[in-house]
Amino acid sequence: MNSGGSSATVEVEHLTKIYRVHKRPPGLAAAMKSLLRRRYEEVRAVDDLSLSIAPGERVGFLGPNGAGKTTTLKVLSGLLHPTAGKVRVAGHVPQERQAAFLKRITLVMGQKQQLLWDLPPSETFALNRAVYDIPRVQFEETLEELTRLLEIGEVVGKPTRQLSLGERMKCELAAALLHRPEVLFLDEPTIGLDVSMQLTVREFVRRYNERFGATVMLTSHYMDDVAALCPRVVVIDQGKLRYDGGLAELVRTRRPEKRAVVGFERPVVRAELEESLGGMGRVVEHSDGKAVIQVRQSDLKAALAMVLARFPVADLTVEDPPLEEVMRELFAGEKPR
């Protein structure tokens, strides 16, 4: 039930969120002074942000620490009132926090948990069944499915405090999705998890999205999460929109080069390799039996042909530059538009 004929699930128009923060220098004198006179400063966490997300989309929300990602997610989930601008999620104004809205969304925060600490996750599930008013049959079906997909059958009966971080996060996801929300806001859902658990969570989010057609907005510092899950990324920095579009396109426009990882049958001298490349590219990593060569897309064929012809190549793969590097460059170089 979207308003104004729009088919978007998330609509953000000129969103601005300003925090008023008490500021004082360190030390006892400053502490005493602040008793009499307080200095406040305004922090513009989100600055004139506009974006729109269609139903069923998976969007990566990226930016350096303090960029305003979490603040935006909190506004979208109704926890914060915007200072200015309009926001609609699933046809609702989030800050009104209507029950019908809260039943259609979920916000999973990797650093915070809703699971009751001293009780088994099954108690939190029962609590959520009651507060979300989930019909018992639907609850049992969903719980069975989530338990199977997340492989948490063994742990739901143990007190939460005795679970590992990965087990807790999987149960956290189950608790957050029992009411089958249409919109998932995931704030660093894989933080602190090992690689295999990250993979499990990622795969699960993808399956949930495909199974229920849910819209997913994800922040993560692990670029692998974003690369694996999100065809579209929104990049913000200092609260301002820096990029909104396809992930592949972002990589292509920011770093048009490709990387060739070449394994050699015997050691190759770096200088010889660089000299042979001429102006086509450069060697970015080198060890006795291996080199990573960065080459312009247009010169890729020629460069590879040259390397194959002149050097004892044992193994060759071509890949995009690491997403982390692309992001680092994006945050470091470009001014807000």
Binding site: L116, D118, E123, A126, D133
Partner: peptide, 24 residues
């Protein structure tokens, strides 16, 4: 949440609250 839905949920809230109270 309507008052009726809240009242339906309340016994579960009390039960889980009691379980927590016993835990602490």
């Amino acid at each position: 949440m309507t008052m009726r839905a809240a009242l339906r949920a309340y016994p579960t809230l009390l039960r889980v609250g009691l379980a927590e109270a016993v835990a602490y």
